[in-house]
């Protein structure tokens, strides 16, 4: 499936291995024929339920130090992990992607009908799909950075590491209204839930931002997001 405009083409090819990981398989054990064919069936038909949308802006990093970074005069990110990255970046891409509401409406209906296996598989396919959209946008940001002789960092999102989920509001503020139908709840969860917001640092390859990995300095060994 493709979504194209003059900037990004999103090709969503569901990764069965990743879906298996999301639903709890550890990769060392085989799965039953029933569950394997269920994943194949849903993966084949899920594109009817996926409506990939994205929005991103690239802004200048004014300054970053300690646990604070100022972007473009009015955007303040409060996080040591983010500030340590942006300290070495000249610009930052702020992005938001979603696959829309249809897949999760279908998942909810399956769950209401107590078809939890099907709901769980479809939910995992949605998780993989939205990651694919974010990856495509990130690839485009990498291309843009490349034309300026710059490189990009990994993606970071509010709610991970020390970056408070409340900072979602700052991400949405930065997108100046182009929030592609995604809204925030009082607790800063995104609706549709199959949405990803975050930042990607842009800077010189001399600053080694491609390899910036805050996990190296973090003792939380059991963190599910550990890289």
């Amino acid at each position: 499936m493709f979504v194209t405009d003059d900037r990004v083409a999103v090709d969503i090819e569901i990764d069965k291995e990743q879906v298996c990981h999301y639903i709890g398989y550890d990769g060392n054990h085989g799965m039953s024929a029933r569950i394997s064919s269920l994943i194949d069936d849903y993966a084949e038909h899920a594109h009817h339920l996926i409506n990939p949308l994205y929005s991103y802006v690239i802004k200048n990093v004014e300054w970053a130090r300690g646990s604070m970074a100022l972007i473009d005069d009015s955007i303040i990110f409060k996080s040591q992990v983010v500030a340590q990255l942006l300290e070495h970046c000249s610009q930052v891409a702020i992005l938001l992607v979603t696959i829309g509401k249809y897949l999760e409406e279908t998942t909810s209906k399956l769950a209401r009908d107590r078809l939890m296996l099907q709901a769980t598989v479809l939910d995992a396919i949605g998780s993989d799909a939205v990651e694919k959209v974010a990856d495509a946008v990130q690839d485009r940001i990498k291309e843009i950075a490349g034309t300026m002789g710059l490189v990009i960092s990994r993606r970071f999102s509010p709610g991970y590491c020390d970056w408070n989920i409340g900072q979602q509001r700052m991400i949405f503020h930065a997108l100046t209204g182009n929030t592609i139908g995604v809204r925030l709840t009082g607790e800063c969860l995104m609706i549709p839930q199959k949405s990803i917001s975050g930042i990607v640092g842009i800077g010189s390859s001399k600053k080694h931002i491609e390899n910036y990995n805050p996990c190296k300095f973090c003792n939380k060994q059991d963190c599910p997001g550990r890289r």
């Binding site: 550890d26 029933r34 569950i35």
Partner: peptide, 8 residues
């Protein structure tokens, strides 16, 4: 068994 097996 994993979560999907248990759900089935």
């Amino acid at each position: 068994y994993f979560i999907p097996d248990m759900l089935a």
